[in-house]
Nucleic acid binder design. Sequence first.
DNA 1: CATATGTCCTGAGAGC
DNA 2: TGCTCTCAGGACATAT
Length: 277
Amino acid sequence: MPELPEVETMCRGIRCVEGAIVSNFRKAPSRYRPITLEPTVATIRRRIRGQKIEQVERLGKRVILRFENGHRIVMEPRMTGLVLIEEPPNRDHLRIIFELEESLIPELYFWDKRGLGTVRLYSEKEFDEKVRSKVGPDALEISADEMRQQFKDSQREVKVALLDQKRVAGIGNLYASEILHRAKVGPQRKCSGISKAEWGRIHQANVDILQTAIRYEGSTLGDGTYRNALNDPGSYQNEHVVYDRANETCLTCKKGTIIRIVQAQRSTFYCKLCQKR
DNA sequence: CATATGTCCTGAGAGC
DNA sequence: TGCTCTCAGGACATAT
């Protein structure tokens, strides 16, 4: 479930590879079905070997390595992917190894337990056409007015709409519940029925929660999968107010009970008393 | 165009 | 103990 805070934490954690040269790119041996890798490993290796990593960037929930020739490696952790500069949680689920030189960091890893993540290489032109153009404004960059404009005409339920990366990039299932709770807006409200003041609260909650979660280096849930670039867990899970707290008394109003519902095949947690329906 | 749904994947946990 | 079943949800292909 890496969302914006977790992916931002990964990017910050691997920023020390900026300036390094890729000396080799290879798949790790694995008994599992290979992750999506495009184009082929040989083609990627040919195009990035000897290239300097100019910059590590985040695009929504993706980690980008920009090379001096303009090519970009785009890594999507999706559910269980990690980008590390230290030994990964185990070697079984190690997928990709970047060998580095002219660097204090010997290797950069893409590790993925469930294997839904992807690693792709794009030229500068392909990146703009196929990746950047399909991602909306970043959740930490967008203004309150822009955020409202992105959603106000939609007929979808607000919790479902917040997950649409083309409208706003970075919010995922966990933080959507937390944001709507903080903003006191029920998750099943239609976007079009939400007031300007409520959009203002959603925007403010979005910024506050995502920035705070970055300070805590993201949320490592019960399965322990998410780790930062040094293979250490985050700690924002201890600050969750509604996520994964079904049947507990609401920490905000101390009266309601947190309930779990399913929207678009994903769990939503909220308090019926705090959040206006 | 907007929106809804099925699919991919593995490990953890429940139930027997 | 070991088997089967269900569930977790990111992004995308496909359907309406």
